[in-house]
Amino acid sequence: MPTARGIRGERPFIVFMLVPAFFFLLMFYVYPTLFNLEVSFTDLSLFGLKQGGEWIGIANYVELVTSDDFHRVVFNTVVWLTVVGVAVRIVLGLGLALLLDSKVLDKYRLKTISRVLLLVPWATPPIVAIVSWRWLLNPQLGDINKLLLGLGIVEQPIAFLSEAAWVWPALITIITWNTLPLVALSFLAALQSLPSELLEAAEIDGAGRWQRLRYVIIPHLKPAIIVMTLMSTFWTFNNFVYVWLTTAGGPGLYTNVMATEVYIKAFIDGRMGYSSAVGVVMATLMVAFGMVYLRFIAQREFKEVF
């Protein structure tokens, strides 16, 4: 075991070895972050990148805080995209993991094939998934509408990506389809580390299926659920590609989220300063979420880590 003196003696070497990592962190994370913060206090325009912007203080922040449109964008990002999107993935991921771990699949020798099939959506690039789903959901030519009409479930085709009642569920379906496998596989891996003796003991003690799930399986999966919730929240909150390629934020502002708002303000309205302010708010919200989550939930579960 290294002594304190030994570590002190090696400190210059350790610092030296960390310099490249710190350099890249400074260059590609800290500097852009600070630069973005500085730009958010200016009126920098897309068409004036060479000239630079003028310092306007907190005007961009005042504008976005007082803008009804921005309130809607925050609501969409937090409630629809993140809370609903992540909750659906966690619940379905858990259900899928339990199914894949069940004896039924073993009995019919479907375990391997079902796990391979689960990987297909995950291996599909988002752009391919989105284009395919757009076709599937097309009111005139899409197979989903053809099926619904054929089965007599609906009388008129549903415009899933343009009717207000359907657009968010459709969007979340696409995101879930593409990203669910990672969640399910993580839970499956955690499930497989659950000693079978625990379940057998619970069964002998008279615990039914629901009780085994509630008092044995879920507590065992808790660390995995916490990690996946945290990671899914970060990925989802910051996600641009699914919303942009599926609805581009429309109809109206109905599915516009913070990531698409950053793009629209910067590259369509040409307001780089305002767009940077939106980016700063996004980052602040995520940092705040991460801190609260780690402080109140993860810390309780991973005492040995913190």
């Binding site: 429309g250 109809p251 502002l253 109905y254 629209i264 369509i268």
Partner: peptide, 14 residues
């Protein structure tokens, strides 16, 4: 962009 958004908001009854 704004024309699209405003028309869209009216089209869906928002």
């Amino acid at each position: 962009n704004q024309t699209s958004r405003s028309f869209g908001a009216a089209f869906i009854g928002e």
